[in-house]
Design a protein around this nucleic acid. Structure first.
Lengths: 322, 322
DNA sequence: CTGTTAGCGCATTCAT
DNA sequence: ATGAATGCGCTAACAG
């Protein structure tokens, strides 16, 4: 592989001149520039990135850290991140939990986007204190050096609930997720707030406790159907549970949406229900990835201070509601 | 960030000694070694990978190149690749078509796994001629320097068909994919060979032409049902088309599998059919990723010559067959 | 407009 | 068992 020295020798100039041409400096004569450029093409010269990085102290590479390979929506996030980074000519490396510590410290990357629950806040703050540019997804860190990109649970659930009310639904059941998780709290509170504003009754009887799993949705659906506690609509804290509820209702011959409507939250493809069936707040995965990357790039390139971005999940209407 | 010089100074030794300790050389006194090691911990020293790479001429990083972010099974492949590379302490970077040329030439990676149809054979052979270690997936290159990992279409379709015959199916329809694609040719030929061996009749009437899409499956299914040409089983060249056939049959109240059984090929999750419904040859995505990575690592580390690996897709029985 | 020089952080001879 | 010197390929002061 030809290096800059070879080019310089062949062109009868110094490496500096070659370097200047390569980096677009103005202080090079036109014919010298041309000669060097054509020589580079002829000799198939490509600058050695390692050397360039070593010199500049930067790598022009960002890392995306995640751990759950089961959820296909990660691919969409990766897609968004990749597109943005590529537009800015920044390389992307992917790593999982086990690799993060080594990568983060040895100057292999200039920044990272972290979406990996197995990495705790402490580790992230540690990395941030070493001047690593960081963006976390799906969590918020109380640090002025770490940006975050999260779903706007409140606004999204608010809109979903509002529109359900507008459609005429009055008797609501709510199937919550794991208690104390921010997702649960925010979605549930937003839901209750809208009902309250509309003076629609909501009692503890109307609340069911789930754990985000399809199973817990089935359980809750069974209980509702068997107990005869069938509302106009069951609002679920995520799609999985909504799928479970639908499944349970099917067993009991409870027509969805004629007898009871069902809504979810997430908007990812599921094997349980056909695409487009479930009314839900669809988290825009690609866009969130893109925005996370964009945020990171601005921090890396322009020294932008850390910021927090909440992304609203648009409501998608399916056949599970009228 | 502390560097090797800082450590050497603090330990009152030369950088050479520190380097030797870090790289596990034997020629260092035990107490000196301990002192240096503890100093590294104290000062939170991490070797600068860029410098190390520049020096060694290697990057210890591999690249996975793909382009289709819509297909969720890519995540499984990535998972397999990642696991293998990580076991060997090799970093992984992901890139898409647009980035490959720059990455491949400037010494940013030591090798690459390519699963991107928008990259043509020529580009790959070019890279190989520059001593880049390469593994291609889902295609075979006629080059002694490029390894390949592909699905063993013949063996898989053979087994699937054999087992269908064993189960008593005698009247077969076949729904083929796009003509001249290796996948189509290999699967179709294997299918026909098994029927022939078993002296089971198969005429052009029993062949339907599809294009791998769900739509083309629906069309074929409609034609079969409307024409009254219903066999015991429809063997499809992929899952998508099988899903289409099932859907068409449902419209015509043709019971699957009681009246007609249906089989597919691929084994990826689909939104059209519930998981576990379709009998199919399930391509082991994770394993193929892992094997591709393993092959690459051996080429990189042990100079293993290029090789070709065919991976059999195990038959998975679902409810679409008896 | 062009060249000389120094050094990024590290591994690797070759001495001692 | 330890150290001094050299250079990987490149960029950037500084000189001319």
């Amino acid at each position: 592989m030809a290096n800059i020295k070879d080019i310089a020798k062949a062109a009868n100039v110094s490496v500096t001149t070659v370097s200047n041409v390569l980096n677009g400096k103005a202080n090079v004569g036109p014919e010298t520039r041309e000669k060097i450029l054509s020589l580079c093409r002829e000799m198939d010269y490509h600058p050695n990135i390692m050397a360039r990085n070593l010199k500049s102290g930067k790598t022009n590479t960002a890392m995306f850290c995640f751990s759950d390979f089961e959820r296909s929506f990660y691919l969409k996030i990766i897609n968004g991140i990749n597109d943005c980074l590529h537009e800015h000519h920044i390389g992307m490396i992917i790593c999982t939990h086990s690799a993060i510590n080594s990568f983060l410290r040895n100057g292999f990357v200039d920044g990272a986007i972290v979406l990996d629950k197995s990495i705790n806040d402490r580790q992230i703050l540690d990395a941030a204190s070493q001047d690593m540019n960081l963006v976390v997804m799906d969590r918020i860190l109380d640090s002025p050096k770490v940006s975050s990109v999260v779903t706007d649970n409140r606004a999204s659930m608010e809109e979903l609930t509002k529109r359900l009310v507008q459609k005429g639904y009055r008797r609501f059941n709510y199937l919550g997720g794991i208690e104390n998780t921010p997702d649960h709290v925010e979605r549930y509170e937003a839901f209750k707030a809208v009902l309250k504003t509309n003076r629609i009754a909501f009692t503890p009887d109307n609340y069911y406790q789930g754990d985000y799993s399809v199973q817990s949705g089935i359980r809750a659906g069974n209980i509702m159907a068997m107990g005869g506690n069938l509302p106009d609509v069951v609002v679920c804290a995520n799609d999985n549970m909504a799928a479970g509820v639908v499944q349970a209702f099917r067993e009991f011959d409870v027509d969805v949406p004629k007898r009871v409507a069902v809504s979810g939250f997430d908007g990812d493809h599921m094997s349980e229900l056909p695409d487009g069936y479930l009314t839900t707040a669809a988290i825009p995965r690609y866009e969130m990835g893109y925005l996370a990357a964009e945020t990171l790039v601005k921090m890396m390139n322009e020294g932008m201070p850390a910021m927090e971005r909440k992304i609203k999940a648009p409501v998608v209407w399916g056949r599970s509601t009228r």
